[in-house]
Amino acid sequence: MTHENDKPRLDREIIAMRVAQELPDGGYVNLGIGIPTLVSSFVPEGRTVFYHSESGVLNCGPLADEGEEDIDLINAGGQFVKPVPGMAFFNSADGFAMIRGGHVDVTVLGAHQVSAKGDIANWMLPQRGVGNVGGAMDLAAGAKDVIVAMEHTDRENHPKIVQVCDLPLTGKECVSLIVTDLAVIRRTTEGLVLEEVAPGWTAEEVQELTGARLTVSPSLREFQL
């Protein structure tokens, strides 16, 4: 499993760019913290996406410029954002009604692990003894589509895509697409399907760094950007 492969991997911006292509025109999208936050910078031209934020704003804008920060206008990560026309403010009960009620089309989450069945673990590392769940479990359970954006392996090069998660779960059987620095993997009724690989990588090399069996798509291709 710990086969050393030092081929170049994609950077976080490319992962975000690839995820951005999945966002539907006119869709409501919630971006988690980390790589997912970068996704908003890469939405293809001509496509409009409305961001939902647990902080209590719909049509959440991009990060505020220095000097323009307003403590009453933040995103879910506590970062200051810009006001944009068409915003709506709401309270947290309504905000999570939007999430659980299936009104949010897509959420993009980071993860520690994703399993073959689409389980996701992203909120707690047991060695810390306590974790911040925030809105992650609500998003995993409620959003129509859950996309995971993450590195393919952890710092010790262990696979983050596993047969069964051994870290505390965030949600079960909810992930529909995984975009990593090596591959695009879709969860189907037949299991995980490898659809795209990073330039220079083969399906076999990706499989070696993956803890769950991948079905190679007949139309396997290089990352489509």
Binding site: N91, S92, F96, I99, V130, V133, D138
Partner: peptide
């Protein structure tokens, strides 16, 4: 002590 509650569940329990 701590009781960790998902944010949406927390909001809904208070509501």
């Amino acid at each position: 002590e701590v009781e960790v509650v998902p944010q949406g569940t927390l909001a809904e329990r208070i509501r």
